[in-house]
Nucleic acid binder design. Structure first.
Lengths: 91, 91, 91, 91
DNA sequence: CGGACAAGTTTGCCAC
DNA sequence: GTGGCAAACTTGTCCG
């Protein structure tokens, strides 16, 4: 017997070890993700320092991510509502 | 002498009382604000339950809040950038 | 006839009116919230004018909120774990 | 002539190229981040398939992060107060 | 659909 | 007074 005496299959300890392993794997990955998040922030900061409008760049990236049709559909709904209360925004 | 003996003007205690008062005033106001925030949430929930598109409503409110010229300026910058990489989104 | 004469079912106009109503309710509430936000600012300004450190006061308020949240959080964690155990051992 | 013929200083085109470059760098990084996010999801899925409660694991990770943050936070509070006292009594 | 998590926007602070 | 920096809050997305 190489393990804790008196326990047949040692399930409680095993569970603890496994939980610890899962938690640490997740934390490791979360750190990686944070690094990438920071890298994105750096790109925008660089763009800004070169005189570009970060807000517009973010908007551009966000809209490219969406399906183009979906964007137009959203704009259409918005425009309809704006019309309904007598205001204009797009274009 | 009605207060703590041995202290001429009791400044330390006074400061503590004042700090406590400021903190509690702020906390009271923060609670009020939270109530109003929840009320706004309720309005949108009601609109949604009546079949309206909440996202479009929020966008409408947000844009009304901005100066109309500012909105057009932001759209213009965005459009310029989109053009610059050969894409179209608005209208 | 209880509604606008000369329009059959008037649905388009109704929607517009409702949208306008929702928007205005939200805007009204947003104004209220802004008032409260300004009140909070005033409290801090007053504290500052009386020689207190605003940053430290803000920290204090934030910390107290965090502590209050922590109680709820701990209850939630307990429930989660209780549930998890219940799932694994009792179900 | 090393660049596009017929354009004096070519600034408009340059801006477009730079915008495109920024957008693509961000999109590239966003993809990486998504991969990591998916990896995390996979870890939880694996844990779940081995009979662990995912919600409890997420809580655990979140709590550990919060605890780690709390240490920094407490240091910050200490500094703030020290500074506040320093301002009031030493300066 | 409701809550947890992540992103973006806004706001307040600080240095210049 | 302004402009960059940091943090809080709000909003949007995604999973259960």
């Amino acid at each position: 017997m190489t393990d804790t005496p008196g326990e047949g299959h040692n399930s409680k300890n095993d569970a603890g070890l496994k939980i610890k392993a899962y938690v640490e794997r997740v934390e490791r990955l979360a750190e990686e993700r944070q690094v990438t998040t920071d890298d994105i922030k750096d790109v925008y900061a660089e763009a800004k320092s070169n005189g570009f409008d970060v807000k517009a760049l973010r908007r551009l990236v966000a809209q490219r991510k969406k399906d183009a049709d979906k964007v137009k559909e959203e704009n259409a709904i918005f425009e309809t509502y704006a019309h309904a209360i007598g205001q204009e925004y797009l274009a």
